[in-house]
């Protein structure tokens, strides 16, 4: 059991607005170490958390540009490496390479988007003991908050008032997939 888990508390909510209320109040209390669990992405939660924009788009852009460059480079370089004329066309036939470049733009863009997702969302995250409850994948919302020293009671108060169906102090860390 980690020290962090020691200090935190996990609240389970049945309703969205209750969760949002709890987050906003926790933020007002300057509890910054909050993890929210949700079965469905809801903008209400994002707004409440005031999260910065995801950097995945940078990955997409860089991947796509790399792909385009790779496509043109591949066509051009291989044509020059062993020049073979076909159909009286020039050695470097850019219109044809546009298609290769386009496909590689998409391919590299997509793959680097996935890489961006995995890196930013810290996935895969398997076999580690974490705070989790299977109910979060079914229909429940959850907030795991780590209060700063001395805030424990207030946090508990906020969660309870907001409408938490259950509040677990020092929840047990589990391996997802085993419960």
């Amino acid at each position: 059991m980690s020290a962090r888990a020691d200090a935190g508390m996990l609240a389970v909510f049945g309703e969205l607005d209750a969760t949002v209320t709890a987050i906003e109040r926790l933020r007002a209390l300057k509890v910054s170490d909050i993890v929210v669990f949700t079965p469905v992405p809801r903008h209400e939660l994002d707004h409440a958390l005031h999260e910065p924009e995801s950097p995945v788009r940078i990955f997409t852009l860089v991947g796509g540009l790399t792909g385009a460059a790779t496509g043109f480079a591949l066509g051009t370089w291989t044509s020059l490496d062993w020049p073979l004329v076909t159909g009286g066309k020039p050695i470097i036939t850019l219109p044809a390479f546009v298609i290769i470049a386009f496909e590689l733009t998409i391919l590299f863009g997509a793959l680097s988007t996935v890489a961006g997702l995995l890196i930013n969302a810290r996935l895969p995250h398997m076999g580690l003991e974490v705070i989790y409850d299977p109910a979060f994948s079914a229909g429940k919302f959850g907030i795991y908050a780590v209060p700063q020293p001395g805030q424990g009671a207030s946090v508990r108060q906020i969660l309870g008032d907001a409408g938490a169906e259950e509040i677990r102090e020092r929840p047990e860390e589990v391996r997802v997939g085993t419960v």
Binding site: F37, H125, L128
Partner: peptide, 22 residues
């Protein structure tokens, strides 16, 4: 296959953006 997905707020944030770009 689920890669240890827990449905946390940051997972969802990156997931939705990545999904949009894909």
């Amino acid at each position: 296959l689920s890669l240890g997905w827990r449905g946390t707020n940051w997972e969802w944030k990156h997931f939705t953006r990545a999904y949009l770009y894909l």
